[in-house]
Design a protein around this nucleic acid. Structure first.
Lengths: 140, 140
DNA sequence: GTAGATGCAAAACCTTTGCATTTTG
DNA sequence: CAAAATGCAAAGGTTTTGCATCTAC
């Protein structure tokens, strides 16, 4: 992460390290408020504005991505900077990334049918992660 | 819409008719605030809370769907109650619906690769609608 | 007549901004 | 040392809630 900041020409500061550390300790997706709470719980000084600014920075750098859950919540997930999609566990919030799913055909089909020129897309998959699946009734 | 309300066991009230009318007069996606502004502009009495409550009601009834744009804006679009996806014009906000795009294979592939049990998905397509395409430089 | 709907104003949120102060490179 | 980053508190915006008053059925 230090590397990434340097590469991006941004400064490596205490607060940014703190945010990075807090993110690292989170298993699943999180909100800005989550990090603020974590910081307070650990008695780490960290300003609200800094958290928002840092999340935005990390997102621009491609280290994070913001997802909008069906609930309307804005959550962030750690991810690789290439194009991909997220599979989100609706129970625990853990996410996995998938890429190259063969969406091209789907997009082409949509373009043909609607006449729209499709420039971008967002795909979110919701379900249960392997662990939550085991803990649930249905081991199908 | 009257029908839909009756079917759902909800009352057909003045404010709900007003909201439905305002929605009808909108060409593209809109926010709760948009409707409030429209109402004010037309000197229609309509409470803020009622707008939010009605949008929620219509959404539950499947007449509307709330989308979260990449910008973070919460917009609503009119749509049919079956499963489908939205193609959204990034210039004018007009939307089109598409269904049965052959996503099944994509979902199956994602499930296989991640081990998640995939229960639901959201796909948003962004681009230019035919009209905006024409008005833009690139008639490719 | 009564459950359901409304409107208002306040509360609750969430996110951004201005600006003086501190810190990094 | 200069530019960048921070923190605070305030502003801005959106959505929700409590409650007294209406109104559709």
């Amino acid at each position: 992460m230090q590397r990434a900041l340097e590469r991006a020409g941004s400064r490596v500061t205490g607060p940014r390290r703190t945010v990075a550390a807090l993110i690292n300790d989170r298993a699943a997706h999180f909100t800005a408020a989550d990090l603020l709470d974590d910081a307070r719980a650990r008695r780490l000084s960290l300003g609200r504005a800094t958290v928002f600014r840092t999340l935005e920075l990390f997102s621009e750098m491609g280290l994070l991505e913001r997802l909008d859950l069906p609930s309307g919540e804005h959550v962030y997930v750690v991810c690789a900077p290439r194009h991909h999609h997220h599979v989100i566990c609706s129970r625990c919030g853990r996410t996995a990334e998938v890429a190259d799913l063969g969406l091209e055909d789907v997009l082409a089909e949509a373009a043909t049918r609607t006449g729209y020129q499709i420039d971008d897309h967002r795909l979110e998959l919701h379900g249960l992660c392997p662990a939550c699946r085991r803990r649930t009734g249905d081991p199908s």
